Computed example of a mutant assay.
Amino acid sequence: MIRVLVADDEPMIRAGVAAILASDEQIEVVAEAADGREAVERVRSVRPDVALLDIRMPNLDGLSAAEQIRRLVPETAVIMLTTFSEDEYIGRALAAGAGGFLLKSGDPRELVAGVRAVADGAAFLSPKVAHRVIAQLSGERLTRAAAAREQIAGLTGREREVLALVGAGMSNADIAGKLFVVEGTVKAYVSTILSRLGAKNRVQAAIVAYEAGLVGD
């Protein structure tokens, strides 16, 4: 069972998100919060698998809450939920350590898919968000590609292989099956890769993999 916290300052939004998630028998909403500060407190006490945070909330915004949650309760994955798709929010969400970014205007099925993917150790971006991220990368591709290639230079061949699969959006379980190793081994590889790349999470590592050419367009 995937245990989820939903944080949004609008009660109707919280209720709607909870109802959508409840449609999946593998997901349980175990806590709700009306602002960012309460979200951090609830995560610290309930320790959910995933915290779904609205970006604009009173007292403490979702991005700041995400940073605190990732620092205080690193085992809880974070997904940002917003009506805004501006580049500044996308970049700050990824920098805050969010493992997913979904738009409230997106398909409800994306919400369930995103929670399941992030809980399974993968990354998930709404297709509209992914398009904007890729567009940003393409605009600075040559410079960023050189920097990314330098970042992965110190990785072993196996670590690069695992990084490429992370970049392709595969979960630890999927990677383990593809490489014929146990999932614990994959987790160890991913942890080492994140450390060597200086990446906060799989999303940032996936971007490095893309920029370095380990993942095809």
Rank of each mutant, 00 (worst) to 15 (best):
Gly99Asn: 06
Gly154Leu: 06
Met80Gln: 12
Gly91Glu: 02
Thr156Phe: 02
Ala123Tyr: 06
Arg144Trp: 12
Asn172Gly: 03
Asp107Cys: 03
Pro108Asp: 11
Arg149Asp: 00
Gln136Val: 10
Thr82Gln: 05
Ala93Asp: 13
Glu161His: 09
Ala117Thr: 06
Arg92Thr: 03
Ala93Ile: 12
Ile90Asp: 02
Pro74Asn: 06
Arg70Gln: 02
Arg109Glu: 07
Ala95Phe: 13
Glu150Cys: 04
Val118Met: 09
Ala119Thr: 02
Ala147Thr: 13
Phe124Lys: 01
Ala93Trp: 12
Gly106Ser: 12
Arg158Ser: 12
Arg132Val: 08
Phe124Cys: 03
Leu125Glu: 02
Gln151Lys: 15
Glu75Cys: 00
Val133Trp: 11
Leu142Arg: 14
Arg160Gln: 12
Asn172Tyr: 07
Ile90Tyr: 02
Ser171His: 03
Val129Leu: 04
Glu88Trp: 13
Ser64Met: 11
Ala117Arg: 04
Thr156Asn: 07
Pro127Ser: 00
Pro127Phe: 00
Leu111His: 04
Ala93Phe: 14
Asp120Tyr: 08
Val162Arg: 00
Ala117Glu: 01
Arg132Pro: 04
Val129Met: 04
His131Trp: 15
Lys104Asp: 07
Arg109Gly: 02
Val118His: 09
Leu125Trp: 03
Arg160Asn: 10
Ala147Gly: 06
Ala122Tyr: 11
Ile175Arg: 09
